[in-house]
Design a binder for these strands. Structure first.
Length: 658
RNA sequence: CGGGGAGUGGCUCAGCCUGGUAGAGCACCUGGUUCGGGACCAGGGGGUCGGAGGUUCAAAUCCUCUCUCCCCGACCA
């Protein structure tokens, strides 16, 4: 109210002009325009009960004719994925640079609604903080991540030359607060969260808002006394995340995920299936198994070993020109499953200093290396293929003819010599074919363990679609399902971090025995714009997209088909006022445009309900159109508001019941 | 970072090969006719052709360098 009075006075200070009212109205409609940082708080509901005077009441209405909603008939050529095209066409966003976007009115409204849902749910389990986006170097040095983050971290210097970075995640900062403030087990558990801008200098921003360099994240961090406590915090987040995504109208799956460089034991991603996604998910249609391909396993059918030749001992065979698996298989008339494939890498180990180590990975000819798993098994930070000289140095052989027989390997991974790592599916295998580390030669009758050994055996392969589900039931019986692989986008991720940060940064509390202990941590993220993007990817058609009422910028648009007709205009105004009174976000399309233009625009921008005020209004009827189904029903003007309210309430009820 | 593509009014694009000083549709402004799925007529405004340098009497067009954006890959707590 202070704002309104102050503005009122300013406006009165000079002779009133007709446009003053309009301008005043504009500001009143947008109380946030005067807030310095409306990103931090959702648009507060205006205190409707406290409003006085007709002017204010009527000014509440959002009239399309007064708004800036720059819809585009055609999508800019730069946009490829559906969500990107539609966000641009619907006037939600405009691009400023690669992976950098302006949010316009509709985009920001939708955004604020998503944030409001996230906040409402997160407040049930945690406490909201707000940490800075610009961060000093020191905490990152303490955790060891100043170096690890590499070029993905935006770095800058202040005027004194001190190093700063733009926050890409906040484990360090939250942990520093915990270290400084938490003293006793009695203060645990704690769940602290924030909704804040993150910066990541992505090597390749892409797909509109799917991979960007500045985005908004809800990130939370839990501090518990012990593993059981962490399990609880993790489960709380799991439950709350499910509610958040459900309320936002997303169809999602929770999948097992790789922990990556975050460290930690368990991690779960919340994924939305869409071809625009960058992740591959393996899931079982029979049981509930679902995992990121970086993590997924499968049950392999036993391989029928081929018969040995000669006395069964390894035999050198001249195989000219057979460098590829397919050539070798054809030459020996065997299945690729009986061939041993070698993929040779140089692996980076990060410690006090960075060192590169030779690694030879062996697996079945018909399998593919999963580099995420491989790095995990090795404890490597990066991988790159060996070059020819390195192949010669470590394996003494040329590409295409590499094999495990006769290799000198280290006993421990990532030593000075060669690390030989085999996929578990090779253990116990017999009579296989492999390269001889000699141009144009292979060896047959090769048995794992007898003819070659290894530094370590691990699961380092990617599962293939159609392989058997790895799950077993309570009685130990195998699941009968076959895995299917689909593309998805990650909208949330929850991690059990363990002690990595609390230990590194020296956070300690006293337990009930007065003994110093390190709290155990979890970290949990939700990408706010990815919710919007995923929702659009999930529900769009030729005309535009459809958002759930919970996250749409407006719940209902009242389309006055012909504003030249005063009766229609008045009916529209009145109906919109009723919808407002019912607590719905209403947009009144009072533009002097042809009906077709307004219908197209309404469909484009994703508002879930539309009420057409047209010819039938004379007989007291309007049309209620659902964007999702396209279905239209005639309802009495007097009933329309209640009908929309009922549908929206049902949608919310449905979400709540899940 | 490797590979590919593109920069010409706000948007989509033509013109470039074969140099001669910029065009269409949509959008925008004015007037009129229209008015239920992106109307029509008439008139009008708006572009140093991403930037720099060069060749030439003359460059959107040819050459060199550079910047930006998009796609594939690498990468991606």
């Amino acid at each position: 109210m202070d704002t309104w009075q102050a503005l009122g006075r300013t406006a009165q200070a000079r002779p009133r002009r007709p446009e003053d009212d309009e301008h005043l109205e504009w500001i009143l409609v947008h109380p946030n325009a005067l807030r310095p940082c409306n990103n931090r708080r959702p648009a507060p509901e205006m205190p409707r009960a406290n409003t006085d005077g007709k002017a204010l009441k009527s000014s509440f209405m959002h009239r399309w004719s007064k708004l800036f909603v720059p819809t585009l008939r055609e999508a800019p050529a730069d946009a490829e994925v559906a969500s990107h095209k539609f966000l641009l066409r619907a006037g939600y966003v405009r691009q400023l640079g690669a992976g950098i976007y302006n949010y316009l009115f509709l985009g920001q409204r939708s955004f604020n609604k998503i944030i409001a849902i996230v906040r409402e749910e997160m407040d049930k389990i945690g406490q909201e903080f707000y940490l800075p986006g610009i961060l000093p170097r020191e905490p990152w040095e303490e955790s060891g991540r100043w170096g690890v983050m590499g070029d993905n971290m935006f770095r800058l210097k202040d005027r004194k030359g001190a190093d700063l970075c733009l926050g890409m995640t906040h484990e360090e900062i939250m942990t520093s607060i915990a270290r400084n403030e938490l003293r006793s087990y009695k203060q645990l558990p704690q769940i602290w969260y924030q909704i804040q801008t993150k910066f990541r200098d992505e090597p390749r921003p892409k797909s509109g808002l799917l991979r960007v360099r500045q985005f908004t994240m809800k990130d939370s961090y839990s501090f518990d006394l012990n593993a059981a406590g962490l399990d609880k915090s993790f489960d709380l987040h799991d439950q709350v995340y499910r509610r958040i995504f459900t309320r936002c109208g997303l169809k999602f799956v929770a999948v097992e995920a790789d922990s990556g460089s975050m460290g930690g034991s368990q991690s779960q991603e919340f994924m939305v299936y869409t071809d625009a996604g960058e992740d591959l998910i393996a899931s079982c249609p029979v049981c509930n198994y679902a995992a990121n391909l970086e993590k997924a396993t499968s049950r392999l059918e036993p391989v029928t070993e081929i018969d040995p030749t000669g006395d069964g001992s390894p035999e050198l065979v001249h195989t000219p020109g057979c460098a590829a698996i397919a050539d070798v298989a054809a030459f020996f008339k065997i299945s690729p499953a009986s061939d041993i494939k070698c993929v040779a890498y140089m692996a980076l180990k990060r410690g006090a200093k960075e060192t590169w180590h030779g690694v030879a990975a062996f697996l079945r000819g018909d399998h593919q290396v999963n580099e995420t798993k491989l790095m995990g098994a090795l404890g490597a930070a990066e991988l790159r293929p060996m070059v020819a000289e390195e192949l010669e140095q470590y394996l003494h052989g040329p590409a295409g003819y590499l094999g495990p027989v006769g290799l000198n390997h280290d006993a421990q991974p990532m030593g000075d010599g060669l690390t030989v790592i085999i996929d578990k599916s090779l253990e116990g295998r017999k009579n296989m074919v492999c390269g001889a580390n000699k141009l144009d030669y292979h060896i047959r009758n090769v048995c794992a363990g007898r003819d070659f050994t290894w530094t370590l055996a691990a699961d380092i392969r990617s599962v293939n679609e159609g392989e058997a589900c790895p799950q077993t039931d309570a009685h130990g019986a195998s699941c009968s399902g076959k895995l299917v692989v689909g593309k998805a986008v990650e909208v949330g991720h929850i991690f059990k971090l363990g002690y990595k940060y609390s230990e590194a940064m020296g956070a300690r509390v006293l337990d009930e025995n007065g003994k110093e202990v390190t709290p155990i941590m979890g970290s949990y993220g939700i990408g706010i714009e990815r919710i919007l993007t995923a929702a659009i990817e999930q529900k769009n058609d030729a005309n535009g997209f459809c958002l759930a009422a919970s996250i749409a910028p407006f719940t209902v648009v009242v389309t006055v088909t012909n504003v030249g007709d005063q009766a229609l205009r008045e009916t529209g105004e009145q109906l919109a006022a009723e919808l407002e009174a019912a607590g719905l976000d209403v947009l009144l399309d009072d533009r002097d445009e042809r009906a077709g233009v307004k219908f197209k625009d309404a469909d484009l921008v994703g508002i879930p309900y539309r009420i057409n005020v047209g010819k039938k209004a004379a007989s007291g009827l309007v049309e209620l159109v659902s964007r999702a189904t396209g279905q239209s029903v005639d309802v009495a003007v007097a009933e329309a508001a209640a009908q929309v309210k009922q549908r929206v309430d049902e949608e919310r009820l449905l979400a709540d019941s899940q």
